[in-house]
Design a protein around this nucleic acid. Structure first.
Lengths: 353, 353
DNA sequence: CTGAAAGCGCTTACAG
DNA sequence: CTGAAAGCGCTTACAG
């Protein structure tokens, strides 16, 4: 039989059972190992399977019958590449895969754009981790809730009944801001993460803040306000170096209005602000201090050692994965809020004058 | 009805059909949009679905019935984190997700360790991309072949009948080696990628090379031999900076035997060799020249600009994804071999003496 | 320890 | 345009 022909007529459990001279039920038991089957019978079944090139029970049929697919979905708020370019997300992903080990489940990457045949609305997943504070969260959550799929949100309030794994965004930012104040800064500006579903770039305004759909962004803004009540700034269109650079240029170009310190809401954005400062001939930290958030090593940023708030990204992922395992076991786990640690690098210093 | 109760009795297509007063077939047609259904009927079905909180056809039943799961597997040769730490793999992954867009399929992350309930042996995937030149390839391929699942291998010969997406490992390395020879180097050593399934660290010996299970490693060694016939060196236990550092220390510690140039088989390994040189008080490239492979930006390596062979990682992934799409459409695509581009950075120079 | 039966939820020819 | 029927491949009570 050629490969092509074989592909058109793969053997089924029934075929194997027939050849082994047992019932399908018995053959099934032999494969699952979950029932009492005599050694002789088991071996007859396996021999038949081998003879027929049977690769084992079809997972599609198993999951229909069992009501479980053995797959955990991870909803990214953007295309796969973008998520993979963010070190924080990678660490969370790895943490999740660690957390769900007891499930032996695979990780299915999903985006919340709703494109493609396989989406949040119909992916064959048993549970889902929502990564990142996506503005589109509400819609995603509604679909998942309708489907009765357990979910946990990492960063972001997805609904009162949905477990949240978060960090101390407000307090951590407050501590970073206090560090700047202690250095003597008073003219400080923010470079925030996206605020709305369109990820609109631009100045931070009370209107836009009021309409924020990103809890993380809002919380970190609030933390900065605790120290610098009137602080303003700009919103980036994503968390990456280029967006940080654009924001930095907008903030630092005019010597008249230039802040002496910038609070960026991610390390990638902070790195971009540093790039912008360099382009404008400004020294960091002599002319501008830059504070980040995340505590990831940013590619090519050396010899700068970013002053930042280090958050436990992998631990967050692991906690999320563990929570899903518990929910699938019928338990009702609590959410977790982790603490970030202030790291003093070499990108902050007292203001020049 | 409480959420918990709802979770125990999710409505089915049959329920929706009954409420809409139509047959299940018609309701199915209404949802799939693939059959002739009158507007009035369709709306009645949707109204019933809404009233019952029906989230749409169960993907598990659909995939059993249709024989397709809408999921493409990506087999990583190591744990998720390790793959995500390798920029080359991330670029390939992103390329794959781009290549399978026409399928609208999700990407399921799998490792070839065989652990967990969902593995290569039973994952509900329609097709699979094998990433990286894993030594465990043979076993993975055998399982997939038995299951009749179309696959494509990125880097690595998986079998005569399996499409390969590769690059010019031998020729690219040859060009890099020639660059070193032209600079005047003659005492050159290799730091290779793993050679065997155990990823054994240690000196390169004819025996070990003969038993290599990694085509990529062997091809790159062969390319170096075209220029430096007797070249030896050490094998790293993985492609990361720390392994490169260990290899570099082994190679550079003894001033008597120290090479004037090192050919590393990945940029990450090259970065590690540079770190080792620094630790030993050697200057790069003044005391030791270092050549990499991949053309990725290595975190924290600035101001070094690695001399390397730049390979088109994302394009490889895309080609792999596209090949799978074609195979699923019943076509028989060819493999592709891409070319790498030599990049002259600042880590190679004529030997000191 | 083994088998007959029912059914997981859907889609797809096939009739009408 | 709509419906009745069969079946995708398996697992799970239930009997024996």
């Amino acid at each position: 039989m050629t490969d092509a022909a074989a592909a058109h007529a793969r053997p089924t459990l029934a075929d194997v059972a027939a050849r082994a001279g047992v019932s399908a039920s018995t053959a099934s038991l032999a494969f699952s190992g979950s029932g009492p089957v005599s050694d002789a019978t088991r071996e007859r079944v396996f021999a038949a399977a081998k003879a027929l090139d049977y690769a084992g029970p079809d997972p599609r049929a198993q999951s229909l019958r069992r009501g479980r697919s053995g797959i955990v979905g991870v909803v990214l708020e953007e295309r796969v590449r973008a998520a993979f370019l963010d070190p924080v997300k990678i660490q969370m992903l790895d943490g999740i895969s660690e957390g769900i080990v007891p499930l032996g489940a695979g990780l299915l990457l999903l985006t919340d754009t709703g494109e493609g045949a396989v989406s949040v609305a119909n992916a064959p997943v048993d549970a889902v981790a929502l990564i990142g504070c996506s503005p589109r969260l509400a819609h995603t959550v509604a679909q998942l809730r309708l489907r009765g799929i357990p979910m946990v949100a990492i960063e972001g309030h997805a609904g009162d009944d949905i477990i949240e794994i978060s960090i101390d965004n407000e307090d951590a930012t407050r501590r970073g801001a206090e560090h700047l104040r202690e250095l003597g800064h008073s003219r400080v500006a923010l470079v925030t993460l996206p605020l709305d579903p369109e990820r609109t770039r631009g100045p931070l305004t009370p209107e836009r803040e009021a309409e924020s759909t990103s809890a993380t962004t809002s919380e970190r803004i609030a933390g900065a306000r605790l120290v610098f009540p009137g602080i303003g700034g700009v919103t980036a269109g994503a968390s990456d170096v280029e967006e940080g650079r654009l924001a930095g240029l907008a903030l630092l170009a005019d010597p008249e209005t230039r802040p002496t310190a910038v609070i960026a809401q991610s390390d990638l954005l902070a790195a971009g602000v540093i790039r912008a400062a360099e382009e404008l001939g400004l020294a960091v930290p002599a002319d501008v201090s830059v504070l980040g958030f995340d505590g990831v090593r940013v590619d090519g940023l050396a010899p700068y050692d970013l002053t930042t708030l280090v958050q436990p990204s992998a631990a967050k992922g692991r906690a999320a994965g563990e929570a899903l395992v518990q929910m699938l076991a019928g338990e009702h786990p609590e959410g977790t809020c982790f603490s970030s640690v202030f790291h003093r690098g070499n990108t902050t210093a007292p203001p020049a004058r």
